[in-house]
Design a protein around this nucleic acid. Structure first.
Lengths: 212, 212
DNA sequence: CGCGCAGTACTGGACAGTCTAGTTTGATCG
DNA sequence: CGATCAAACTAGACTGTCCAGTACTGCGCG
């Protein structure tokens, strides 16, 4: 109890390796990262790396998969019960701001760049990222859109189409800028909130009741 | 006159190298492409490759730069005189469909994936792609938006903001799907046209005159 | 004690870039 | 037309380095 500090030795090593792998793969890419470098940064011997993860490819797949799943969970747990009043635009703006706050971080953006660059080599990882990211967000949004429509607050005949439209109205510009311009081009929180509000305003103008 | 076939020998070799470089870099990435492989596919000796382009890095930069510039030119030459009537939505839908047709091709998408994956190694190439792609399109669109507004056909107080909004309304969904799901996920022409029309409809609902 | 780890050397192969020696090409001129 | 010549090209060996993965020896933690 005095010696073991919360975690088994093996588990600590394993996490050290994953932490180093995250740093190196996100910075240098798959081919640009060497296992020697990785062992050194992990402060672990190469043997230990291979004992925990059988190969470079396995390590890469495991790391990216877990990061993808974790990033997807970030957005998931939100109470959708706040939509009782009629402030659709406000609700959507808040949702969009939250989504942007999760996605527009160096970690997530680097992961996305890495996966996009490796689409040909690891198509399954890219598909997993797509499903855990945009697709999941859109599915969840579509439920909200349908609810708003049922209550007569919105005219979204096709909830998935509406959700897709709103999602990319929100994410399109900042995401694509960040992909190419690097992490320094990430807007600050205030700018993201302004953008979220703008997107919600445009969306409600097109899908609000009584407009069309 | 009978011997030289249109192009000098040197020029033919040069183009063969660039063609092979395009195929290999777009498929395997920068680090994933070897100069031996490239020389073989070019049907040229390695010496010739190094005679034409001093290094792997130079060749890569030159190839990507020229592809970026060429792709940017594709959209540029359009007669904007067709907007005399009041059919704003129709005009924007046509513009969007054209833009999508240029961008949603395997060649351009692979280039984009390649550049995104190499942002850390070659930030200048990524910036050039951004400026020749989205930024250029948005600047040109902003002019159109301002004209429409002057004629009372649109209420775009901030033409750049309006152009940015429309641009990503159009490009966001298909672009981001294609980035992660690969070239097989590129929608067909009909689907792209439908999407373009949808984007124009949403945009006009938000920015059209008399709505807000 | 014994398992898992450190440290490190090693294998086999790949890769960027250079070097050398010989060959082809195409223009020029007698 | 044919000889000549320089530039460009070929083929492949070669250097120095790096890398994924393995083998082995000893050591310290539990």
């Amino acid at each position: 109890m005095a010696t073991t500090n919360e975690l088994s030795r093996s588990e600590r090593k394993r996490r050290a390796i994953l932490a180093a792998a995250e740093a190196l793969f996100l910075r240098n890419g798959y081919l640009g990262t060497s296992m020697d470098e990785l062992a050194e940064l992990s402060e672990v011997s190469k043997q230990t790396v291979y004992a925990h993860f059988g190969s470079k490819e396995s390590l890469f797949v495991e790391l990216v998969s877990s990061m993808t799943a974790a990033a997807g969970d970030g957005l998931h747990d939100r109470d959708e019960r706040a939509a009782l009043d009629g402030d659709v635009a406000g609700h959507l703006a808040r949702y969009a701001a939250d989504e942007l706050a999760v996605v527009m971080t160096p970690r997530v953006l680097k992961l996305r760049r890495l996966v996009i660059g490796e689409v040909e080599r690891f198509p399954d990882l890219a598909r997993a990222l797509y499903e855990n990211g945009p697709e999941r967000a859109i599915r969840s949004l579509a439920v909200t859109m349908a609810e708003f429509t049922d209550r007569g607050l919105l005219a979204a005949d096709d909830p998935v189409e509406a959700a897709t439209t709103f999602n990319w109205l929100v994410m399109g510009a900042p995401m694509n800028e960040a992909m190419l311009l690097g992490d320094e081009a990430i807007p600050d929180v205030a700018a993201l909130q302004r953008h979220a509000a703008h997107a919600a305003r445009v969306f409600v103008a097109a899908y609000g009741v009584g407009v069309r």
